[in-house]
Design a protein around this nucleic acid. Structure first.
Lengths: 146, 146
DNA sequence: ATACAAGTTCAAGTTAACTTGAGGTCAAGG
DNA sequence: CCTTGACCTCAAGTTAACTTGAACTTGTAT
């Protein structure tokens, strides 16, 4: 596959694929002239990277999991991450419920609403987590220029 | 309250509080000499900011919710965010389960495990989300220098 | 044969959310 | 009075994860 095929199939811009290669997250297996050639199973790697990112691993952490012999995941690390995720899920669930409530709450302002305040208190307990930013919808930023 | 009290109570370094003030996320209500004085209810604000961050809002989005008259949340936005969260929760749940499985999976490598592959496919569907990075454990970085 | 779209490299730019550093101020204690 | 520590400002630095731009090369279509 050439880079644009991989880009298309993965939804990632070519620049990201090059960047990932440079980081050692994926490999191209040879060139045709200058052009990288990718083995189709790079798609699995990319899926795995995507998974890892979604699960909160940094690219460096993911790279560390892909040791020399393909993929060799540290099982303890997986378990630990699963537990992290579980915690996050519980918090997000509280927040979702809190948000849903706040959206329909009749109190004159949210600080007078006991439900909302309870939510705040839950959120307050977990100050240790960094953002999980959602992608901004910058229009037309897909790696293809018009 | 002076800034160090707020810092202590909130767990945030003073530099972050100043930064938040500059961004308009919190206000100090006056000075004693140079020093900022904070009204105790800044703590509620901070809790709300923490909540917002955890729920995936950027600081700018949060700032936009705190309109002139204290906090005046756009209810439609809240609902929308609740739905976003719900989606994220579902995905994270799949991932958590997938990770738990992978951690104990007997297959010689994860690509031969159908459960893991199913997980990959789930993760693959959701390439639009940015990381939710967990805080690195940099030791001794708490805003207090020795 | 030549144009050109699609590759390539490498360095530098971007964004969010802070942090760090240099240099300055002030109130209280010795 | 003078030192000290906690605070201040403002500019610049940091990190992750990419993106952009400039300048160059190449396979393919005309």
């Amino acid at each position: 596959m050439d880079i644009s095929e991989v880009a298309k199939a993965s939804g990632l811009p070519a620049s990201t694929l090059r960047f990932y290669e440079e980081k050692g997250l994926i490999q191209s297996n040879g060139r045709s002239g200058l052009r990288r050639l990718f083995n189709p199973d790079v798609m699995d790697r990319l899926a795995l990277i995507s998974l890892g990112r979604s699960a909160g691993f940094s690219l460096d952490e993911i790279a560390a999991m892909f040791t020399s012999e393909g993929l060799e995941i540290n099982r303890a690390l997986l378990s630990a991450k699963a537990e992290d995720l579980d915690k996050i899920i519980k918090e997000l669930t509280s927040m979702r419920d809190g948000l849903r409530h706040a959206a329909v709450c009749k109190a004159p302002n949210h600080f007078e609403c006991p439900t909302f305040l309870r939510l705040l208190r839950i959120a307050g307990k977990n100050r240790s987590r960094q953002p999980n930013q959602l992608q901004k919808n910058k229009p037309g930023r897909d790696g293809q220029k018009p």
